[in-house]
């Protein structure tokens, strides 16, 4: 006749607990090292992305500076419609949160900037374009 045990003691429990202890020790050590290596990896990605984003925005701002200076010299240099688009581009560039890469709107604003820039260059009849993106044309800027 079998005798039922008084309680539900699991004779494997001490072994499982010891395994968990070793897992947690390993996790703690790995986490500490992950913070070090992860921060450096993140920084490298940030360096590349930051330079690329900054360069593209600087390019648009540089073009804007030239066009704005030209308008101040000669009001008739561009049509009223082009001047309006130039002002809109200026507003978009001012709205870009350059120092806050986590802002959820950065991609949306960048797309609007790119679109407005293309509208202006099309109106001016120039092939001027930012050549930093992989898909962009490699054509040299042509002097008109």
């Amino acid at each position: 006749m079998d005798q039922k045990p008084k309680d539900d003691f699991d004779f494997l429990e001490p072994s499982v607990l010891l395994d968990e202890t070793h897992y947690q020790t390993g996790f703690k050590n790995g986490y500490s090292e992950g913070l070090v290596s992860g921060k450096e990896e993140g920084r490298q990605v940030g360096l590349k992305n930051g330079f690329q984003v900054g360069e593209e925005l600087g390019f648009y701002q540089g073009c804007l500076d030239v066009w704005t200076s030209l308008v101040s010299i000669d009001q008739d240099a561009f049509s009223a419609r082009v001047r309006k688009n130039i002002e809109q581009l200026a507003a978009l560039l001012r709205s870009y949160p350059l120092s806050n890469p986590e802002d959820e709107q950065v991609q949306d604003i960048m797309e609007k900037i790119r679109l407005k820039f293309r509208v202006i260059t099309a109106s001016l009849g120039t092939k001027l374009e930012y050549q930093g993106r992989p898909t962009s044309s490699k054509q040299d800027v042509e002097d008109l």
């Binding site: 490298q44 940030g46 590349k48 690329q52 900054g54």
Partner: peptide
């Protein structure tokens, strides 16, 4: 880490 790297490069890229 990304934010640190981004902050170190965005203004240099902008200037260029």
């Amino acid at each position: 880490g990304f934010n640190v790297g981004f902050g170190q490069s965005v203004h240099v890229g902008y200037k260029w």
